[in-house]
Design a protein around this nucleic acid. Structure first.
Length: 291
DNA sequence: GACCAGGGTAACT
DNA sequence: AGTTACCATGGT
């Protein structure tokens, strides 16, 4: 991987198995905006990033090498060989071929733990466009402001300290509805240090999952999403309404329990379950599989 | 105006 | 221990 410093833009050459649009639009993250055909902007870890892709080049605008090394390289999971991951998944089950070939540039992002936790608490029983809207609203109201060279203002998702100053009523005003007390509980447990990324990543997956589920409003599915997208545990298989439909369509002849589907998938895909899940989710949802 | 959404909880059998 | 109503709110 070659990094060239062209004024303040970083050009990452030779990226493989990576498609910026697929990575961002596959339903794992909510705090980004499509600027035009090629350009996206996103905020994560308190930083603003404009990014685009031209063939096998990824271009990060106005970014330091330091930020790339510390944040964006792991955020985009650039050090991982997705070619072998896809091959290994196909060896486990060749029936994922259509899903993988449809979106061969998917990656599992390593997002900010706290933002991922709150975002997926918000996600319950909501459609993706609405989740995005709420994440943007909360960021504008309570996050840190960034003034771009153009003069336009954008906002990071609030830190846990910033969000700890926000009342349940103010959260409700952001249209989170019945999830307001859930968010409050999560914020309290993180700001007190009772739950932290540092502790969670030293645990086994099941230990970390159980710990996350002590937060009121965090069940199996939300916990699995946080493990996968915010903590780097790839051996987990979030089952939402879509994954339930897709798995039933692909593997079963009658409706299944979500727990049963998760257990079946863990048995089948093992350590690669998280990756398999994302290929299936995006493919199944775009094609309305099982609806 | 129903019905559904990257669900979870509490109150039921 | 396994179901089921209910939770706010916007999209379809």
């Amino acid at each position: 991987m070659i990094i060239t410093d062209d004024i303040n833009n970083l050009i990452i050459d030779d990226i493989k198995d990576f498609d910026l649009e697929e990575v961002l639009e596959c339903g794992q993250c909510f705090h980004f905006t499509k600027l035009d055909d090629k350009h996206y902007e996103l905020l994560s870890f308190g930083k603003y990033l404009e990014v685009s892709q031209e063939a096998n080049q990824l271009i990060l605008y106005n970014t330091s090498i330091d930020d790339f090394e510390k944040i964006w390289k792991s955020y985009f999971d650039l050090d991982r060989d997705y070619g072998s991951i896809k091959n290994e998944i196909l060896n486990l089950d060749s029936r994922l071929n259509d899903a993988i070939c449809a979106k061969p540039g998917i990656r599992i992002l390593k997002q900010d733990f706290f933002e991922t936790l709150i975002s997926f608490i918000i996600s319950q029983n909501k459609q993706i466009p609405h989740i995005k809207q709420i994440v943007h609203t909360i960021s504008e109201k309570y996050g840190t402001e960034h003034i771009l060279p153009s003069g336009r203002k954008v906002y990071s998702f609030p830190t846990v300290e910033q969000l700890s100053l926000v009342s349940e009523e103010e959260l409700r005003a952001c249209k989170v509805g019945f999830r307001a007390p859930y968010i409050k509980c999560a914020v309290d447990m993180v700001v007190s240090g009772e739950i932290s990324e540092e502790k969670l990543i030293t645990m086994s997956v099941s230990q970390a999952r159980e710990t996350l589920m002590t937060i009121k409003g965090v069940g199996e599915k939300v916990a699995n999403c946080v493990l996968l997208f915010g903590l780097g545990f790839t051996d987990t298989f979030p089952v939402d309404v879509w994954m339930k439909r897709i798995m039933e369509y692909m593997y079963f002849d009658k409706p299944q329990d979500k727990k049963a589907i998760e257990a079946f998938a863990m048995e089948k895909y093992g350590d690669l379950a998280g990756y398999a899940q994302q290929y299936l989710f995006f493919y199944g949802r775009e094609n309305g599989l099982g609806k």
